[in-house]
């Protein structure tokens, strides 16, 4: 058991928390503007895939990172057009984006590399010590997002769009523009989280490699009470559960079955959401439009 609490465990937790932070911050901005985003999962997957494909095409890992983020933003644009302009059901649209992401990446993996399971190996992003440079970036983004949301005019207007869309419109806020920007930012951040999985932590893409992290990030947003620091805390909680599980697997004599430990984040989320749902509720205008048609 002594070999359990090591520096290794800490870096492991930081590594698995990083993609959750990126996606959760994206989801947070999106939901604060009043748009439900269950497409985070698919947007992460698109980011993960195109970061590898972009690196493969250009031979430059930073170009790959940008391509991954840009493609995730295109996915987010679909979500925005359907949810905001077409006033579609935001959960239905998110489901469609997730399915398209799964199908498109699986289709393209075969078309590009001819293999069904995953991509060839490409370069990965530079590392700081044993961790990708994106790890500190994720943690540094938390105060930045908190500052923008709570201390700038644009951030407060964004919140107004989510809290009370009708009032925001009466106050002369271009709610459509703010919501589009918010959904696109969520694409950018989720794409970054996905790219971290493929070219940050590893150097290849495998099918469905996000494996529910987008959904976990969304749960972190809710569990964290729609605040950046809360989301960070929740993401760390999920990251710790996963990190402890991986570490436990490689520690002989660890008392809890690792298969059960993997289930921890889901149980924690279920309990937490059930307990806190009455004290913490999301933006009042979440999923609604400024005017009824």
């Amino acid at each position: 058991m002594e070999d359990f609490f090591t520096l290794d465990l800490l870096t492991r937790i930081l590594r698995v928390t990083t993609p959750l932070i990126f996606a959760a911050l994206g989801g947070l901005i999106c939901e604060r503007s009043g748009v439900i985003n269950i497409a985070l999962e698919g947007l992460m997957l698109i980011g993960a895939f195109f970061a590898v494909a972009g690196t493969y095409w250009t031979g430059n890992v930073f170009a790959g990172l940008l391509i991954g983020m840009a493609c995730a933003m295109v996915g987010a644009l679909i979500h925005a057009v359907w949810s905001i302009t077409f006033r579609g059901d935001q959960i239905v649209v998110g489901t469609a984006v997730n399915l398209i992401a799964l199908g498109l990446t699986a289709f393209l993996v075969k078309a590009i590399w001819g293999a069904a399971g995953g991509s060839d190996r490409v370069h990965s992003l530079p590392k700081v010590g044993s961790m990708s440079i994106l790890v500190p970036v994720a943690f540094a983004l938390v105060p930045v997002v908190a500052f923008i949301l709570f201390r700038t005019k644009q951030g407060l207007r964004l919140q107004a769009c989510g809290e009370h869309p009708q009032a925001a419109v009466s106050a002369g806020i271009d709610i459509t523009r703010y919501r589009y920007l918010a959904v696109l930012s969520s694409g950018l951040l989720a794409g970054l989280g996905g790219a971290y999985l493929s070219i940050g932590n590893l150097n290849y893409f495998t099918l469905d490699m996000t494996n529910g992290r987008g959904f976990i990030a969304l749960a972190a947003v809710i569990l964290g009470g729609w605040s950046p620091w809360g989301a960070l805390a929740a993401a760390l909680l999920f990251g710790a559960a996963e990190g402890v599980q991986v570490q436990g697997q490689s520690t002989p004599g660890f008392p809890i079955s690792s298969d059960l430990m993997v289930a921890m984040p889901y149980i924690v989320t279920l309990i937490a959401i059930t307990l806190f749902v009455k004290t913490r509720s999301g933006p009042a205008g979440l999923g609604t439009h400024a005017t009824t048609s």
């Binding site: 077409f86 579609g88 398209i100 289709f107």
Partner: peptide, 29 residues
């Protein structure tokens, strides 16, 4: 054509259904 295209088409179908809701609402708009 790999069979994964089917998943993609399923996603497109949902998007198309959601877009059609807009057409249904046109008189109201």
């Amino acid at each position: 054509v790999s069979k994964e295209i089917v998943q993609l088409i399923q996603g497109f179908i949902i998007l198309a259904i959601a877009a059609l809701e807009v057409v249904n609402r046109l008189p109201a708009i």
